[in-house]
């Protein structure tokens, strides 16, 4: 086997391997974008269908709504952060499929605006790629089927990926998480944790309507 033949085979092999890797990543990104569009449509349809009376009823029973389970993959909220121009529909669940399509709401945590800690996570190379640009005092807007709320970032932490990072709260709290460092080749070793509190929240209150508009 001549050197030319070896080079040709090596070149072909590398081209094929490269094409497979790039193709796989491209397909995954395309699937995520398609799913995100689909979820956004579902969200808008859901919003359009909700009548005023039904919405009022759900607000009255907000605690009951907060405790009910939501199907994994279903849209649960809309998250917008003006500073980084983020406007995404949050899906229920933090599995690969959900995080590929959009920010994921951690099952078992509260919905944004409800009493408790609402945890939303996303990939650092996708929807939360600019999360590191957020500073204390920046605002976040959330919208669920019951209410919309404005939050202000009050905490920014970087923790090891295996360190306890999520805690219960009796008051409404919003926690955004992603991998850290944001620009990192390989599996990121840490997590960026941002915590936000509702704007105009009376001190000591524990009801879910705080900070909602």
């Amino acid at each position: 086997m001549t050197a030319d033949r070896v080079k040709r085979l090596a070149g072909l092999g590398l081209c094929i391997a490269g094409a497979v890797l790039v193709g796989h990543a491209g397909v995954q990104y395309a699937r995520g974008a398609y799913r995100a569009d689909l979820v956004r449509q579902q969200w808008e349809e859901q919003q359009a269908r909700s009548a005023v009376g039904a919405a009022r009823e759900r607000v009255a029973n907000s605690v009951a709504f907060a405790s009910r389970s939501v199907a994994v993959g279903a849209p649960v909220a809309r998250l917008s952060i003006p500073r980084i121009r983020l406007d995404e529909i949050v899906l229920e669940g933090v599995g690969d499929d959900e995080l590929n399509a959009g920010p994921g709401h951690l099952p078992g945590s509260a919905l944004p605006g409800m009493p408790g800690n609402a945890v939303i996570s996303a990939h650092r190379d996708r929807h939360f790629s600019h999360l590191d640009a957020l500073q204390l005092g920046d605002t976040i807007r959330t919208e669920t089927g019951q209410s919309s709320g404005i939050w202000v970032i009050v905490g920014r932490r970087i923790v090891d990926r295996n360190s306890p990072a999520l805690f219960q709260s009796s008051e409404p709290l919003l926690t955004l998480t992603t991998c850290w460092p944001v620009r990192y080749f390989g599996s990121a070793p840490d997590r960026l944790i941002l915590t936000a509190k509702p704007v105009n929240a009376p001190a000591g209150s524990s009801r879910g309507s705080l900070g909602t508009t």
Binding site: V22, R161, T177, C179, F185, G186
Partner: peptide, 22 residues
């Protein structure tokens, strides 16, 4: 699922590494 003291969800994605290697 959420629990008190839980670690943050695994948001690490291999896709950027795949893309760069490819």
């Amino acid at each position: 699922t959420f629990s008190n003291g839980a670690i943050a969800p695994n948001t690490a994605s291999p896709l950027p590494a795949y893309l760069a290697a490819g």
